[in-house]
Design a protein around this nucleic acid. Structure first.
Lengths: 138, 138
DNA sequence: TATACAGTCTCTAGTAACTAGAGGTTCAAG
DNA sequence: CTTGAACCTCTAGTTACTAGAGACTGTATA
């Protein structure tokens, strides 16, 4: 049995965040000492590691709740879990695509002022003001 | 002179968002009719288009404030604006990098349950529970 | 000119996923 | 037994909006 601070150290999840997860129902209510402090065991550690890892991968709290829900009902859980993971993957791919477009435009914009040439007016500001300077939509 | 709804239609920025931008100081306080309704002109339209475009590119409200500030003090504005754009670019690139890592792991995870083989336990859940299944850090 | 009704106004509260701080209590080491 | 770090709850703040209540305005039509 260890304290919330200990759990925090081991999982790299901040103390207030752990309490927040408990409040959100991601973690079961922790056992308490006589003095009302939370105590955790190995199961708690594993559960929080699971959550941490899923959060790192960008799963929302809601998605993680569903995954935990599935763990408790192992029938058909694999398909449903795969669905959640796939949709997360689609999400990530969409974000990457969008960011690549932005990257192109931003690198074009911020190259504008480098060196000589375009210094009459600020190219950055002009680019942002006039969308026609883009070669694509958004 | 046109109404906030008209401005909204032309810029694709929602009405409450326009009011929000005004409150945040991104837009100057709009002129009002006798009946207290906002009225805009071409300048307002351009300013909001600028903001919209910058937001689309992922600039924060704060960064946009700085850019607007710079427009009002054209001395040295170009360098400072380029700095803001470059840092935005660095940000975008970092995000892309991170997302690529996630993409790899997620695609590995969600492939797990496809077809035959690993169906004893759910591979998705196992992967999330056990970080050792990853071949990288995060 | 009267009326209907879409559009507008302000204000408050809610969203996601935390983070920070106040003010008070408990645990463990010396 | 005393100290002080760690813990407790509660409230409020963060970002960039979005939603809703309840009241007022502007304009098109009869």
């Amino acid at each position: 049995m260890f304290s919330i601070g200990e759990l925090s150290k081991r999982t790299k999840v901040k103390v207030p965040t752990i309490r927040y997860y408990e409040e959100m129902g991601l973690l079961p209510e922790a056992e308490r000492t006589a003095g009302n402090q939370r105590r955790y065991d190995k199961a708690g550690l594993e559960r929080l590691s699971f959550i941490r890892h899923a959060r790192d991968l960008g799963f929302s709290i809601e998605a993680i709740s569903s995954l935990i829900e599935l763990q408790n009902h192992p029938d058909r859980s694999c398909e449903a879990a795969t669905d959640i993971a796939s949709s997360q993957l689609a999400d990530v791919r969409a974000k990457i695509k969008r960011l690549r477009t932005l990257e192109k435009e931003l690198s074009r914009i911020s190259k504008g002022c480098d060196g000589e040439g375009v210094s009459e007016d600020c190219y950055v500001l002009a680019s942002l003001a006039d969308h026609n300077l883009c070669d694509h939509e958004h």
